[in-house]
Design a protein around this nucleic acid. Structure first.
Lengths: 223, 223
DNA sequence: TCCGGACTTTTTGTATACCAAAAATAGACT
DNA sequence: AGTCTATTTTTGGTATACAAAAAGTCCGGA
């Protein structure tokens, strides 16, 4: 029973509720269309209904729950269609981001953070810290988008990353080693300012991730 | 003084507040970083602060206002950078949508609505109903995205269309006749199932829109 | 005169209590 | 058992209150 929010660090209760519920969703603690009742959550987390409503609104906007008028919010369940749609949109936006990132780096934008993330991933793999590997991999993709310099693109991609976290949490994935190799190549292309190469590498890297995830989710969905 | 919302059709006060404020923003009734005070809006529209907050949250998510902790929301102002970013992201998503739409039509999805919109636009141009022309043009682009069948793509594009409405409201545009010709070509490609052609036509159509809008906005911004 | 700090007012973020109406649920009746 | 009705939940909304952070104001001193 987390009385976590009671008197403690105030400021942004809504944000905290959002994070807590999201955590529950990606960890699979809610199942198939479970209802999120406002009063239930507000009592659980010792906050009023206002922050809860705000959190639920954001969860809906990020595609984790669905709300129906006068019936409230229910946790969505991921389908194979969702995964395919996600990968298609990622192919659109992230390949563009990779190309732009290369252009911007060629124009002087510092891209060292990308290499750092790669080094950290190396460490995390060697230490077998699986959660960190996943987190760092996501951070790598996010950093490329950030490097693109297009704020609207960054905004547009944000909800996708939320969904990715969810999907990768449910359906795992393929060899970390292989993925890191691809990240390395992509990193080199971007830091070398090779825009078209970055585009191509990003494309194949994302596309390579699709099948394994689909297969993993299919298994999770129907055991 | 619109007591519009008072006893009337309840249901979705937040939505109405959202629409009303958005209307004000795209119509340019608010200027350069004007503050949106919760109580002010709630008194203006005769609602409590909750629907107002909800509306403001959505306005932020759609990029019309910016909020700062403990300082509330201010109306954003469009910059040339915003326009360029918007067109770049549109090039990503809408060209993909056009390609997918062609594929889906070839696979049997009915695309007649696209032709209807084109006919309506013809009428609107002939009748000199400028507002309708703009609205129908937007609807044409939206319909292509809808035809793509990718719900996540539809969600991702929604905020862009909001911004487009804003931008086209401020900075007008180029010959309706020319645009309609391009729409016609694109429509034919999609209905003919010619995916790559649809992609190319969508690309050049969107890109052709960029310069005029930039020029128009530059004039609006510094008179 | 102009500057900086103390005081006052606004405004947000949240809480509490309450209500109408729609859904969900239970119950009664055929 | 199946349908119609009554009861409880639950949402969406209102009103009001309050602490704390900003913003705005005022005032005294260099």
């Amino acid at each position: 029973m987390p009385e976590t929010l009671t008197g403690r660090d105030d400021e942004a209760r809504a944000e905290q509720v959002y994070q807590l519920v999201l955590e529950g969703i990606v960890a699979g603690r809610y199942e198939q269309g479970a209802r999120l009742r406002e009063r239930e959550l507000s009592e659980l987390y010792n906050v009023s209904r206002i922050p809860v409503r705000e959190a639920i609104q954001r969860l809906e906007q990020d595609g984790f729950v669905e709300t129906f008028p006068r019936r409230g919010a229910v946790v969505r369940q991921l389908t194979l269609t969702d995964v395919n749609e996600l990968f298609d949109v990622r192919l659109c936006l992230e390949t563009f981001a990779a190309r732009m990132a290369a252009v911007r780096v060629a124009a002087g934008e510092p891209g060292l953070r990308l290499k750092e993330l790669l080094d950290d991933t190396r460490q995390a793999i060697d230490d077998d810290r699986t959660d960190d590997v996943v987190r760092l991999s996501a951070a790598f993709h996010a950093e490329i988008v950030r490097l693109s310099g297009n704020r609207l693109l960054i905004e547009s991609v944000k909800p996708l990353f939320g969904r990715m976290r969810w999907i990768f949490g449910l359906a795992h994935n393929r060899s970390n080693e292989l993925q890191r190799d691809e990240h390395m190549e992509l990193c080199n292309a971007i830091l070398g300012g090779k825009a078209e190469l970055a585009y191509t590498l990003a494309y194949s890297h994302i596309e390579l991730g699709r099948e394994p995830v689909l297969k993993g989710l299919a298994e999770t969905l129907e055991p």
